[in-house]
Amino acid sequence: MVWTRRHVLSLADFSPADYDVVLQTASSFREVLSRRTKKVPTLQGQVVANLFFEPSTRTRSSFELAAKRLSADTLNFAAGTSSLSKGETILDTAKTYLAMGTDMMVIRHKEAGVPQAIAAEMDRLGVRVGVLNAGDGQHEHPSQALLDLFTICTLFDSEQPRLSLLEGKKIAIVGDILHSRVARSNIWSLTASGAEVHLAAPPTLLPRWFADYVADSDDRSAPNPRQLFVHWTLNPALENADFVMALRLQKERMTSHLLPSLREYHQQFGITRDRLKLCKPEVKVLHPGPVNRGVEISSDLMDDPQFSLISQQVTSGVAVRMALLYLMGGGKVA
């Protein structure tokens, strides 16, 4: 297996081999994280800059810990106390970190396209700096989708997680899909595996055009080549589902009142024990966090290890982000 990507900006052009490289590399690092000494010298001497122009807890902490577990030096950027308030541009900020010797930049921004713009600037300058998209606006969140994929695949084969393990599985994604960068990245990864992906949300949070989101550009005659389905009610998405992924209501991104109330949303689309009876008996529930308890998922279900994979997702995040930084930092694939 070969890894040739300098940047990880989107999963839209990931190949099955790319997914498998990340999954199997993450599996190796998960073993490292189970040791008494949880640190390896693979990125010693390299500098990882976490440039988060938008608030984050899980993703930022996960990337910082991943870099430190690989023995990299980390630089953490906080927009509120930066020179942006003095008029500095985002590209100038990135070039400042470049001048400090940064080898990789992890970028989060509320506007779509910022990580791509920084990556393009690094390429224009001819420097070998890798850029990783940690979430940009309503575009994508690649590392979250990869850790979700890793969490699911390791249930079927903990030693050799691979994309093909999900072929034929039914996965329901429920919630604020319109505003969710997590949903967009998961659509690419899960449909690439051969899984059947069902999206469910109120019509205001799930436009019909999502069904064409992964249309094959080489075969326009195939209306739904990757088995992506849209539902404006919950039950069809849950019927015989193997996995249910609930998404947070992106209240900070809603520019108009798209829902009557959170209570009504929970009544129609909230994931509860009763609703899981429509799914396969061994169904598992995921959520990228943070969770609005009692809105997207009932509180008791969120904390039930029989169904919930939420804590495993957080743990998987460190291993997957270690894998991405390792691969982008020039690590060799076994």
Rank of each mutant, 00 (worst) to 15 (best):
A79G: 01
I171K: 09
A145L: 12
Y213W: 14
V22F: 06
H139K: 09
V244A: 00
G45C: 00
G331A: 12
S28I: 08
A200V: 03
Q24W: 02
V318C: 11
L309R: 03
V32K: 05
A183Y: 00
D304Q: 13
E111P: 03
Q227F: 12
T93M: 02
N292G: 07
F243Y: 13
N76V: 15
T96R: 02
T102I: 06
S61R: 08
E121K: 08
S62L: 00
V285M: 08
R181G: 00
S143A: 15
S34H: 13
A119P: 11
P223K: 09
V48C: 08
R293E: 13
D136H: 05
L33G: 05
P236W: 04
V295I: 15
E111V: 13
H179C: 02
Y97R: 00
V40N: 08
G137H: 03
V295P: 05
T233L: 05
S82D: 06
N50R: 01
E140W: 06
G45D: 07
L165C: 12
S15L: 15
T191F: 05
E159D: 15
L325F: 07
L190R: 01
P260K: 07
A195D: 03
K39N: 04
L91M: 06
L43Q: 06
K38W: 01
S15G: 13
Q312C: 11
E239Q: 14
T96P: 03
D303L: 11
S15Q: 13
T272P: 10
A117S: 10
P202C: 08
L205Y: 01
I118Y: 06
A112W: 05
V285H: 04
S298F: 09
R162M: 10
A94C: 06
P236C: 06
P305G: 10
L11P: 14
A26K: 01
Q250Y: 01
V129A: 03
S158Q: 14
R58S: 06
V32H: 06
G317K: 04
I173C: 01
A134K: 04
F243V: 04
W232P: 02
A215I: 11
R35V: 05
Q44P: 06
A211Q: 14
L249A: 04
L178G: 02
G270M: 02
F269M: 05
G113R: 07
M105F: 10
M1W: 13
T89S: 12
Q306E: 14
